[in-house]
């Protein structure tokens, strides 16, 4: 079943061929590209915004209160002005300035927490998989236990006792709850790879444990690690936003979650001040959609059977 005939293809067959061609370079995956594009957009907003926009507008009372975005009118019949293109909030802060500062903050918390959680997970997962015995038992039981405890509630207790926290501290705290799933994932993979032919071959070749872990196993874990990392970024941002919406989290730095918190408290929904809560919500939604697309793309990269479907 090797030779291919040269008969011209029908349109349906051409479409099919295009679909199958995606198998050739899995990384050129439209979902992955879109997802990365959305996240880069948010980062660019943060960078370009800092250069081009006057960030002093995030301070209370720097503008008229409750101005709508350009092209809209608020209940007091005021029109939006170009000085504050996305409108202002209930205490006269410019929404554009808020999101330029706030959006990268949310992403930063997510990435940092996930990075720390991931590193812990890789370390514990490899340790459990390689050392085995009692060490494995302890790591397994603790991660089983910790995975069922919702991070939000422990963090609520923490932050309501300690008051204000910095962004970095919040990321550190969240990291304490996102190491469990990478640990479990890597442990399971390590245990199955330990039995695999190529790891046995490496042992026969006199490879050290370090070589087996980092040169033989790690490269094959990359798609899983990426997937787990992105899933953890999502969880971390959700947790951070959750805390902010409860009025916890950093008190002095503008974050998207805190803006939403203030909007709800000020009754922005009833007063029809949709831009106040709506724009941060939209931005967070874009962030989550971007993360989901990356995750779906990575799934397809590591599991060719999924590619057939889309």
């Amino acid at each position: 079943m090797t030779e291919a005939t040269n008969t011209p293809l029908t349109r349906a067959e051409k479409r099919q061929a295009r679909r199958i061609r995606r198998f050739d370079n899995p990384w050129r995956n439209p979902k992955l590209i879109w997802g990365i594009g959305l996240l880069l957009g948010i980062i660019l907003l943060g960078i370009i915004g800092r250069i081009l926009w006057n960030l002093d507008l995030v301070f209370t009372g720097s503008a008229t209160l409750k101005l709508p975005p350009v092209g809209f009118e608020n209940l007091r019949r005021q029109e939006g002005v170009w000085d504050y293109p996305l409108g202002t909030d209930g205490s006269g802060r410019d929404i554009l300035a808020l999101i330029i500062i706030g959006a990268p903050n949310s992403l930063f918390v997510g990435l940092l927490a996930s990075l720390i959680g991931m590193s812990t997970g890789i370390f514990l997962g490899f340790t459990a998989g390689f050392v085995g015995g009692r060490v494995d038992d302890v790591i397994r039981v603790i991660s089983d236990v910790m995975i069922t405890i919702p991070p939000l509630l422990i963090l609520v207790v923490f932050q309501s006792s300690f008051g204000d926290v910095s962004l970095t501290l919040m990321a550190l705290l969240i990291a304490g709850f996102v190491w469990q799933s990478p640990t479990r994932l890597i442990r399971a993979q390590v245990l199955s790879m330990k039995q695999s032919g190529y790891v046995q071959m490496a042992r026969l070749s006199g490879a050290s444990t370090g070589h087996i872990m980092f040169r033989e196993m790690m490269p094959n874990l990359v798609p899983y690690l990426f997937g787990s990392f992105i899933a953890n970024v999502t969880t971390s941002i959700v947790t951070a936003v959750g805390l902010e919406v409860l009025g916890l989290g950093p008190q002095r730095i503008p974050t998207l979650g805190r803006t939403i918190y203030e909007a709800i408290n000020a009754g922005a929904l009833i007063q029809n001040l949709w831009w106040w809560w709506g724009i941060p919500t939209l931005l967070l939604a874009v962030m989550f959609i971007g993360l989901l697309l990356i995750n779906l793309g990575l799934d397809e990269v590591s599991n060719p059977r999924l590619r057939k479907l889309s």
Binding site: L269, T281, L292
Partner: peptide
Amino acid sequence: PAAMVFTSIPPILSGLLLMWIFAAK
């Protein structure tokens, strides 16, 4: 799959949106 894209949003955000459309508006 098209509907799936929106499911990455946490419920708190969808809650705000639904509340605004169906309760406030």
